[in-house]
């Protein structure tokens, strides 16, 4: 019976294929089309970060999902636990789906068409897309999942602690960020950060986001357990 209800939550999310699977790609492909046209008129290769729209979209989905579906699910007597796991499966599936398409398009762009015949670097970018196709797939997947749970975590704070809680969190983050960057500048540590990135591959960096993602997941779960629709 337990798995049954978790499947019910997955089904709930999959009723919304538009938001999870279609809309993000409409956004990305629009950006791609614009860049493709521009690249026709350029002599040099065009490097663009248009693909970031997909990642940002998943952050937004993470933020929105909880407000959209949590009150509904709780109202239909779903356990908070089943909601969490069902959402995890749905988000994991959607992340994998987009990561696979990203990787395929990167392959077509870089290996097959040499920048869509017009020197456009949209899906395959230096440093970010280094490594085998499998590595690229893992990188995209983990980044998308990380952004989803960043958004999910933010709304989780709102659900659990309300407007005031989210406000407090935002201010705390702002202060910490300011202090952090001040110290970094003061101690001239920014160079070290750049060195770190140069010494590590994108893949290694992405693996470091995994523990962050897991922490966001665990904190979201802990907050949902005490959240009231």
């Amino acid at each position: 019976m337990t798995t049954n209800r978790m499947q019910g939550v997955i089904r709930l999310h999959m009723k919304d294929k538009m938001n999870w699977l279609v809309t993000p790609w409409i956004v990305v492909l629009c950006s791609f089309a614009v860049n493709l046209v521009i690249s026709q008129f350029m002599e040099a290769d065009l490097y663009t970060g248009g693909v970031a729209s997909l990642y940002i979209y998943m952050l937004v989905i993470g933020i929105v999902t909880l407000t959209h579906t949590f009150p509904f699910a709780i109202g239909f007597n779903v356990r908070r636990k089943d909601y969490f796991w069902g959402t995890l499966v749905a988000a994991g599936g959607a992340s994998l789906y987009s990561a696979v398409i990203l990787t395929l398009l990167s392959y077509v762009e870089y290996d097959l068409t040499d920048g869509w015949g017009s020197g456009l670097n949209f899906f395959h970018l230096p440093y970010l897309s280094d490594g085998s196709l499998f590595v690229q797939l893992v990188v995209s997947f983990l980044l998308i999942l990380n952004l989803f749970y960043t958004g999910f975590f933010i709304t989780g704070i709102f659900k659990r602690f309300g407007r005031a809680g989210l406000f407090t969190f935002a201010i705390a983050l702002l202060i910490l960020g300011t202090v952090f960057s001040f110290i970094m500048t003061q101690q001239e540590w920014w160079v070290n950060v750049i060195d770190w990135f140069n010494a590590h591959t994108m893949f290694e960096f992405t693996l470091w986001t995994l523990p962050v993602t897991v922490v966001f997941m665990l904190l979201s779960y802990a907050m949902l357990r005490r959240a009231t629709a």
């Binding site: 019976m1 209800r5 007597n77 356990r79 908070r80």
Partner: peptide, 11 residues
Amino acid sequence: ENDRVLSRICF
């Protein structure tokens, strides 16, 4: 958080 109970209620 008890599915044996919650799955038997419709509110």
